[in-house]
């Protein structure tokens, strides 16, 4: 009996001594590189400018745009409802706390999508969820929403629908819709362009059949 106790005490002592020599516990709070690589391959991490515009116009409360450019650039121009977290401050405690809430879809944007993707990469590693990148950033925003390219006449109807939406969104963001000249220019045009915002997506039915 005595020997068993001594043996157990010895093993317990060794286990305790082993703890002293164990390296500092790894931080399990971070994702592994493999896990991030898997999500890199997912297209869902991007939000297109059209999707973002649609959600801004709809006043989606679950959307939080995060501007990762510096504060001067943010002060000069920002998307409606965006908050400014400069990339150099992204690891600050209060900014991390904001992301840790996880109650919204956090969409990073910058001029392009390089800086915002860096922010995405860093925050994903820290296990924050629901992070997205605005595809193409503000440059693409200008090219698609503020200056949408006119589709070719032979384009698919969906492309024209998208173009209509972009024209309507453009009016929404630049405030052109309020100009009296715009109203006069063609009421049907204005109505047509406003319509797609609330348009349900699955409307395309075959009426004939």
């Amino acid at each position: 009996m005595n020997r068993t106790y001594i043996l157990m005490a010895l093993i317990m002592f060794l286990l305790g001594a082993g703890l002293v020599f164990l390296p500092q516990p790894r931080n399990n709070r971070e994702l592994s590189p493999e896990q991030i690589l898997l999500s890199l391959n997912e297209p869902f991490r991007y939000i297109s400018t059209d999707q973002a515009a649609r959600r801004i116009i709809a006043g989606d409360p679950a959307l939080l745009l995060i501007d990762v450019r510096d504060s001067a650039a943010f002060a000069a121009f920002s998307l409606p409802g965006a908050v400014n977290i400069p990339f150099s401050h992204i690891l600050d405690e209060e900014n991390q706390a904001l992301l840790a809430e996880g109650s919204k879809d956090y969409v990073f944007y910058s001029n392009g999508d390089i800086l915002s993707e860096k922010a995405w990469l860093l925050c994903s590693r820290l296990r924050h969820r629901k992070l997205y990148i605005l595809q193409g950033g503000l440059n693409h925003w200008v090219e698609t929403i503020l200056r949408p390219p006119v589709p070719a006449a032979t384009s698919d109807a969906a492309v024209f629908d998208q173009y209509d939406f972009r024209m309507a969104a453009r009016m929404y963001f630049t405030g052109e819709g309020e100009l009296p000249g715009m109203r006069k220019a063609g009421e049907s045009a204005a109505q047509r362009s406003v319509r797609p915002i609330a348009r349900p997506s699955g409307k395309r039915k075959h009426e004939g059949c």
């Binding site: 650039a73 000069a76 121009f77 910058s110 001029n111 392009g112 999508d113 390089i114 800086l115 950033g137 503000l138 440059n139 200008v142 503020l146 963001f173 630049t174 405030g175 052109e176 100009l179 000249g181 715009m182 220019a185």
Partner: peptide, 24 residues
């Protein structure tokens, strides 16, 4: 230079009403 601002966004927004005429 994907991360450079290709446009002057603020100016673009300010100029929007004028730009609208050409668009309309």
């Amino acid at each position: 230079k994907a991360e450079k601002a290709w446009y002057d966004y603020a100016a673009l927004m300010k100029a929007a009403p004028r730009a609208s005429e050409s668009v309309t």
